[in-house]
Design a protein around this nucleic acid. Structure first.
Length: 501
RNA sequence: GGGUCGAUAGCUCAGCCGGUAGAGCAGCGGACUUUUAAUCCGUUGGUCGCGAGUUCGAAUCUCGCUCGACCCA
């Protein structure tokens, strides 16, 4: 990329750095310091899988020639012979380098290679006397000099802050970290395959919105220079995906980032990954069954089982998920409340006051029920539980229940006490949608920063006719946390948001 | 926003009642042709997160700040 050879930040200078830089300078003088002509032909993992079971004598007879490359993680020099362990994307492999096989000069050069350097080696497979599959190296080359030393080889990198800020170091050093992120990739891959197999179309909708919509959240704001207009990073793709269903794409899904301008915690990162999907001619009950089969399949394919352990407690995604209304969920953990009390506005306000819970005093019964549910029940929902019949006033995009217009055909799925999915039969009555937007605008004007904007084009789209449709969002980061037994969302996001150093 | 804990060599950590900094790994030099965190001998390396204060003297005590982890709102 560049030909700069000037030194980086001087305050990082230390003895080890200086020593390595002087080695690099010597390499530069001797020829090409960063060669790119080494042809790597084998991965450690493949070699272990293919030849790991062969005996010492079988390997000697087979004379398997290999070319491996990777970062040197361990080095043991013993005079006229040395062992080194290199690590590539698939695993680790041991090299045996000796005066007899490479010549004294090459072996002496190797002795000055440092842990962290990237090497390429060619040779023949053999087994050591302790039975470890290794390469008897005939040629070893330094491909990339590492100027900075690696973290200590036994403990690795343990400092949480450094693990998050310098994820590359965490990945080099900690196998567990690599496993989590490989699993994350597999989870997303499995989800994608599931939807494609069910006939869904994967789409991409805008990340920059002129009207943020689809969720109750504070957006990030930015500015478009050429159009001289305010824009928002999206808080949800929902309204665009439903426009696509209006357009005739009757089964769509999108896996992508949402942005919400809120605090950071072990469960919140300002940008996070969301799966949203919509299917015409389905309702929220279908979605619940569909979600159960999705979760089951992902666990089975990624973990090989549905019985999982999270932070020391077990749960089985193979068993039917519980289904409770919000009122039932509150009563499950607080049987002293009667249904009449939980539908009484004054009673709810008093309880919330006594509990010192967060709630909006202007809310109606529905909003207050939700606040009480969050305070008293949510954290207890360890086993997968769908909470159904959300109040209409907190569900401005969901279809009302035909028998009771105060509730919607909506559910949220909770696992390990955390909201992990949200789905509903979509509101496809354009006039009702327009009225609900107006109510949101009124709430916004009254000071609710999370209330929605009115999206007139979305209403116009509904006026052309949205078929009866069901839609759902699933928080991918939280799902990955669940399946990788991670306590913090930062442990499942490669580069979590941090304050500047 | 509040509370608890943390920041000392490149990394992992110790450093007690205040007396001017220590180990292991890594590095450097030496021995060693089957090691497995190799071993053995020798050795270099520090703005003790930042800034004040108390004190004859501060890594250590006090206050403030920065960054982080966890818990709470």
């Amino acid at each position: 990329m560049t030909t700069e050879t000037t030194t980086p930040a001087q305050q990082d200078e230390n003895q080890i750095f200086a020593e390595r830089r002087s080695k690099l300078n010597a390499i530069r003088k001797a020829g090409i310091a960063f060669p790119n002509d080494f042809e790597r032909k084998h991965l450690a993992g493949d070699l272990h899988a293919e030849f790991g079971q062969m005996s010492h004598d079988e390997l000697e007879a087979a004379k398997v020639h290999v070319a491996v490359a990777g970062r040197m993680m361990l080095k043991r020099v013993m005079g006229k012979a040395s062992f080194a362990t290199v690590q590539d994307m698939s695993g680790k492999f041991q090299l045996f380098i000796s005066n007899g096989d490479t010549g004294e000069e090459a072996h002496n050069a190797f002795k000055h290679y440092d842990l962290g350097d990237i090497l390429g080696a060619v040779g023949v497979l053999f087994k050591t006397k302790t039975g470890e599959l290794s390469v008897r190296v005939t040629q070893v080359r330094l491909l990339t000099k590492a100027l900075r030393p690696l973290p200590e080889k036994f403990h690795g990198l343990t400092d949480q802050e450094q693990k998050y800020r310098q994820r590359y170091l965490d990945l080099i050093t900690n196998e567990d970290t690599r496993k989590v992120f490989i699993m994350r990739t597999r989870i997303i891959q499995t989800i994608r395959e599931f939807f494609i197999r069910h006939g869904y179309l994967e789409v991409e909708t805008p990340m920059m919105h002129s009207i943020p919509g689809g969720a109750a959240a504070k957006p990030f704001e930015t500015h478009h220079n050429a159009l001289d207009m305010k824009m928002y990073l999206r808080i949800a793709p929902e309204l665009y995906l439903k426009r696509l269903v209006v357009g005739g794409f009757e089964k769509v899904f999108e896996i992508n980032r949402n942005f919400r301008n809120e605090g950071l915690s072990t469960r919140h990162n300002p940008e996070f990954t969301m799966l949203e999907f919509y299917e015409a001619y389905r309702d929220y009950k279908y979605l619940m069954d569909f979600s159960e089969s999705l979760f089951r399949e992902v666990a089975q394919k990624v973990l090989g089982k549905t019985l999982i352990s999270y932070q020391g407690k077990e749960l089985d995604l193979g068993k039917p998920f519980h289904r409770l209304t919000m009122v039932q969920a509150i009563q499950k953990y607080h049987p002293q409340f009667t249904t009449a009390q939980l539908n009484d506005r004054d009673f709810l306000v008093n309880e919330l006051k006594d509990l010192k819970a967060k709630y909006k005093p202007e809310d109606g019964v529905g909003g207050l029920q939700l606040s009480l549910f969050e305070e008293l029940a949510e954290a207890h929902l360890f086993e997968p539980t769908f909470i159904v019949d959300y109040p209409v006033e907190v569900s401005p995009l969901a279809r009302s229940n035909d028998k009771n217009h105060d509730i919607t055909e909506r559910f949220e799925l909770f696992i390990v006490g955390r909201e992990i999915a949200n789905g509903f039969s979509e509101l496809n009555d354009a006039e009702d949608q327009a009225a609900r937007f107006d109510a949101q605008v009124a709430a916004k004007e009254a000071g609710d920063e999370e209330a929605m904007f009115k999206d007139n084009d979305f209403v116009r789209a509904l006026e052309y006719g949205l078929p009866p449709t069901a839609g759902e969002g699933i928080g991918i980061d939280r799902l990955v946390m669940l399946l990788t037994d991670s306590a913090s969302i930062r442990d499942v996001i490669l580069f979590p948001q941090m304050r500047p150093e």
